[in-house]
Amino acid sequence: MKAYAAAASSRFRSAFQYRAAAAAGIACQGFWGLILIMGLEAFYAASAGGVGTAGASGAVGMAGGAPRLGASWLGLANGAAAVPPLSSMISYIWLGQAFLVLTPWGPDPEVRDTIRTGSVAIELLKPLDLYSFWLSKALGLKAAQLSLRALPVLIFGGFLMPLVCLGDYRLSPPPTLGHFFAFLVSLVAALFLCAAVVGIFDILLFRTVSAVGATSLAASLVSLGSGLLVPLPVLPPALGSTLKLLPFSGLADAPFRFWTGIAPLATLPASLAHQVGWTIVLVAAGRAVVRRELLRLDILGG
């Protein structure tokens, strides 16, 4: 146990070194957040008269009224559930930027290098369970990145925006203290789920070194399914609720719904069960695959 704790804490400390890079990252994320917010705001503005009806006739201005893909796409989508208020989606987007590191789109770079160079063989010599070692490292890395990035971006969105006269685009606080605590609990569960997802990415790499295809598939599922690309509550309900079932909604969407007050507090147990359940499933699946893979592992490098 001590060894795993050491792996997590040493990774935390080494990732904490890059402060200039972190500052650049924060500026970039602040700007990116604004782009996403303004992009969504324009959609809200277009449908000011009521979602689902506005624009459908007015928008097709020219070229002889080209048929819209929308009409039948995903069937019953329109009007089934109300679109949440823009201000809550603005907060959702800021949270997405603040907790960006919880939506991984690749393996742990350190683990990737040990597989590429073959030094994974040395790790195997250690009297440790390889997969637990990886998971602890991922947990430490993500915790460090989280504490470096989250607070500054939250301050950027919550306090800087009103200061530079962009008050409409600010991150609003949670509606109640209860929602805030629900958010925190859900966030911790998200951190563990995130480590489990990184573990799956690591394994994809284990199977073939050029696992780029599978990794990109997984990465696009993460970015769409977590609500990072577009907040899940503003997607067409059929698509949004399907994505909510996947593990990736537990990385970001679940805690964000509590902060923004979209999810009532009573849904916390169900939401936590979703996160913890998927964490257990992913870890168990990953561990089983690694155990089998180790029997036929080829070591690279020399």
């Binding site: 959609f43 449908s47 979602v51 506005a54 067409p236």
Partner: peptide
């Protein structure tokens, strides 16, 4: 495309 499905238009532009 999903956003267009939900909101209809962007600044008066249709999806195509």
């Amino acid at each position: 495309a999903a956003l267009f499905e939900r909101f209809g238009s962007f600044s008066g532009w249709s999806l195509p």
